[in-house]
């Protein structure tokens, strides 16, 4: 049996997290045997199917086309996954808002208990996953015949986007449930690298005091090619959009360099960034818990230190 990866895309291109899920799938196939297949369900998403066929390690792309798959609605995608699942030992997706939305719905229809957000594969049926905001690591074994799993992107390298030559096979739609309708979206526009895959992330917290002050972080980000993130407090206060939130209930990042500016370091925030390679904290409170995980801590007023940092990067 093979491993099926549910691919996330916007009908034009794959989302980067798919590549991390493919790596996890290849690892699973190493334990369970079989090939890695990708499901691309979309509306006029032929280009995505072709892109998926290039990913190293993918043996086959299943392409389902229909308006019912145009916006990733879980009510329509889940029955399609159910229809395909019997041929697979594992059905997986990245633990993105898309994967978290769709995969448990498919699992329930299959009478399977899914396993969320795994950070390691121990064997075909045994996985490691963080619980309690990463305060504990659970090793769990699934006894279901098909295993439905979401993958923590930062825990698995991205597969090579090119080098593969999978066959693209079309697969029939499972129909439109008509249960819900996509009305529209307000996506955050940014020229910066994507937060979860960026090599450098600079995040601001409540200490930033306003959304306007994030301009200071943007200047530093420009010089470093960094993505911008935030704590929950900064998002709740309306400084920045919701999709900037890093943490237990936001995005998980693990860049080479994470700069926490005016962030205290609550456990819920740490859950989203403590696997970063190098952590820098700038905070005026020397007792701030963020310093307990920071490789380099600077006790300073950020309104002085951040412009200084920006200037120093020219040197």
């Amino acid at each position: 049996m093979s491993i099926l990866v549910i691919a996330e895309h916007d009908n034009a291109a794959l989302k980067p997290a798919v590549l991390n899920a493919v790596t996890a799938a290849v690892e699973l196939a190493g334990h369970a045997g079989g090939d890695v297949h990708l499901l691309v369900a979309g509306e006029n998403a032929g280009a995505v199917a072709s892109e998926a066929a290039q990913i190293a390690g993918v043996a086959k792309v299943l392409h389902a086309d229909g308006a019912e798959y145009g916006h990733g609605l879980a009510e329509n995608l889940a029955p399609l996954v159910v229809k395909l699942a019997s041929g697979y030992s594992h059905v997986i997706a990245a633990a993105t808002s898309f994967g978290k939305n769709v995969l448990p719905r498919a699992a329930a229809l299959l009478d399977v208990q899914p396993v969320s957000d795994i950070s390691a594969v121990e064997s075909a049926d045994t996985f490691v996953r963080p619980i309690y905001a990463g305060n504990a690591m659970a090793t769990v074994r699934s006894t279901d015949s098909v295993k439905l799993v979401t993958i923590r992107g930062t825990a698995f390298d991205a597969a090579a986007a090119e080098g593969g030559s999978a066959a693209v096979e079309s697969t029939d739609s499972a129909g439109d449930t008509g249960l819900s309708r996509f009305l529209g979206q307000e996506l955050t526009k940014s020229e910066r690298p994507e937060l979860t895959t960026a090599g450098i992330v600079i995040s601001g917290g409540r200490g930033m005091q306003s959304g306007d002050n994030f301009a200071m972080l943007e200047k530093v980000a420009d010089k470093l090619g960094a993505a911008i993130g935030a704590s929950r407090a900064a998002v709740d206060a309306g400084f920045v959009p919701n999709d900037y939130q890093v943490g237990q209930t936001g995005k998980v990042v693990a860049p080479d360099l994470y700069l926490a500016i005016g962030i205290s370091g609550a456990i819920q925030h740490l859950a989203g960034m403590k696997d970063s390679k190098v952590i820098v904290a700038i905070n005026k409170d020397e007792e701030a818990p963020i310093f307990q995980v920071a490789d380099y801590g600077l006790v300073a007023d950020l309104f002085q230190a951040v412009p200084e940092l920006e200037a120093a990067l020219d040197g």
């Binding site: 045994t126 504990a136 074994r141 279901d144 920071a294 490789d295 801590g297």
Partner: peptide
């Protein structure tokens, strides 16, 4: 239950670094 907990362990600890 369908998923068995084999064990629950401590996450890898992170060392505090230096102050600059």
């Amino acid at each position: 239950p369908r998923v068995e907990t084999v064990k629950v362990s401590e996450p890898p600890a992170r060392q505090a670094g230096v102050k600059v």
